[in-house]
Write a protein that binds this DNA or RNA. Structure first.
Lengths: 344, 344
DNA sequence: AGATTTTATGAAAACATTTGCATTACTATT
DNA sequence: AATAGTAATGCAAATGTTTTCATAAAATCT
């Protein structure tokens, strides 16, 4: 342990030490924290003074043993290290902080077995609730949740029939809007660049939304123009380079997210193509930096900030019993017109 | 609370329920978790079976009341929502997870008073240790740490005389290396674009490192070429646009970090300048995406991943008593040659 | 002034676990 | 066979807090 020099060494400053210093009982000290109305202003002041003098800090662990809330919420994300999750984590954290909660975080690197393990770990800490990203989870996880009766919610995705309460965006709709925008600009030769859809409900929903919209318009889905690229600028760039070398190429590229779009744009530029003059590109997400690119990326904005914000507020309400209604909140998407998609 | 249908309703499955089911005492169950060597293999098996049957999950809160570790580490960052912190948080989290710890996270948006408040909050949860970003903290925070005797460490910055154990990079050195690289390429007319240095020890150390190196070489520091820009692509872009419109402009720009560098590059491009042909740019940090830009950003790499990794390992060692030596670890910087800085 | 209600406080039980000490049942040593 | 030593287990106290119940003091009503 750290060897700081010791002040006036604090011999176990617990609630009874405070009580002694304030010349009241421990019960009164506890009450003055939890039900201040029940203790007289005079003693309350004495207690406050004692607390400050001794440097007392309440022990949540001891509290939570009485069925009291822990004031912690667990969040399990695929990864923290991604612009979009970082943003949603930040706003979720801020939001629950406002209700007095602290965030216990864990990541599983897109491995549902690890998600289960993380859930158990958070449950050992008796978190007051667990928020998960997305709607796809192992049966074991869902079962554990229900068996333990831990309040839970899904973040990031919206589905009208979600079993968990959810706050997020409709990815099918996102794909649809993106396709719609390109169609509106007069494009008919549209390529799709998406990550593998399996195990990624976001990607697959977006893809099916885009496809549906194109089919509805009678636009043929050329097999040669359907590409797979992971969420990596470098790899998307490489894919685009191959794709765009073909003789016959699309006039527009619809990308699974902004990272792919950005990679695709770099790829196009490195092939000597100008965006949007020679080829239009649209992304999904509106990540940080998408606005500042040169030219700015046209994209479908998923409101990460407000998803985290709303999710935090509703979840803490549910946990504290302020509002226990089951919620499924669809955060509206927005088509952000910037410089990478032009009318034909 | 959530209303899942109830299985075979678990009436308080605690350690004595397990004990009963395994026909042993609670003590034995506890021991079989914490000191498995002390209990016979046969009973251990019975206990394991009972645990699984009842779906028992240990209660860390109750454990921690016995001075036992909580298996949680608190991390306080300025913001989660920043490429560089997200990366270091991720690797720190992974690293402590390997030692069985969970991360309790809080952010203070660059407000030292809020940092103090967050520290108290984490202490209420009796975290086993607290990691802070950077070396600048309020006296109150430092005092609180020492008073409570909570193990603490600093992440991200290195200083040979740090009072807290630290794992990070030497920012002065980073500035020096960047300047050195530009000098090596033959540049003499060098502009500096940095954020406000006050309250940001990273920025000020980098700036002073760069200045020192330039002065040592006898390169004059033209006042007109010293610009302030916050860590924002958009604002850095704007600053660069003004800066580069001047008649007399530098041949190279040394930027406080990669975000600024990226903004500056966009600004230059929008002024019709080519990077690196017309102007060289160097950043500091090597954020995600810096490599994939077109052209790739020349920068001084701060090894976020290994900082988090090493910090997590050393901190958990310190907390568990495996290695209680005071540590100050300087993670080596690297000059990454890419496409935005050319020889004159 | 006496009876009744209200307000403020304390004593003790309860929460889920760990651990020091005591006990029992073996095993090894003489 | 008696003794010492060891391994496995249980009992009960302890951990820091909250809460129920009881009690004392003060305020209000008749």
């Amino acid at each position: 342990m750290a060897h700081y020099m010791s002040d006036k060494v604090n011999e176990k400053v617990d609630i009874v030490a405070v009580a002694k210093a304030a010349r009241v009982s421990a019960s009164t000290v506890s009450r003055s924290f939890n039900h201040p109305g029940l203790v007289s202003p005079a003693t309350r002041k004495r207690i406050t003074r004692a607390v400050e003098k001794l440097g007392y800090i309440r022990n949540r662990a001891a509290q939570s043993m009485h069925g009291r809330r822990n004031a912690t919420i667990g969040l399990i994300v695929p990864t923290i290290d991604h612009a979009i999750f970082a943003e949603v984590i930040q706003s979720f954290s801020d939001s629950i902080d406002r209700a007095g909660f602290t965030l216990l975080i864990a990541s599983h690197s897109y491995d549902l077995d690890r998600e289960y393990a993380m859930m158990r770990k958070l449950m050992e800490h008796r978190v007051d609730g667990i928020a998960l990203v997305g709607l796809e989870h192992s049966d074991a996880s869902l079962r554990l949740l229900q068996q333990q009766g831990t309040p839970a919610m899904a973040l990031w995705n919206y589905a009208p029939d979600s079993v968990l309460p959810c706050v997020g965006a409709d990815n099918h709709e996102a794909g649809r809007i993106a396709a719609d925008h390109l169609l509106g600009l007069g494009h008919r030769d549209i390529g799709l660049v998406f990550p593998r859809p399996d195990g990624n409900d976001r990607a697959s929903a977006r893809l099916s939304g885009a496809r549906a919209r194109l089919l509805a318009e009678g636009v043929p889905l050329v097999d040669d123009w359907q590409w797979e690229a992971p969420y990596s600028i470098a790899q998307a760039k490489q894919v685009a380079q191959e794709l765009l070398q073909r003789r016959h190429r699309p006039t527009a590229l619809l990308c699974g997210n902004d990272v792919i779009a950005q990679g695709v744009i770099y790829g196009a530029q490195s092939c000597g193509l100008r965006v949007p003059e020679d080829i239009s590109v649209i992304g999904i997400g509106d990540f940080k930096g998408s606005n500042e690119m040169e030219p700015g990326l046209t994209t479908i904005r998923i409101p990460a900030r407000s998803i985290g914000e709303i999710a935090g507020a509703r979840f803490t309400d549910l946990i504290t019993g302020v509002n226990t209604e089951h919620f499924r909140i669809n955060c509206p998407l927005e088509c952000i017109l910037r410089g990478t998609a032009r009318a034909l």
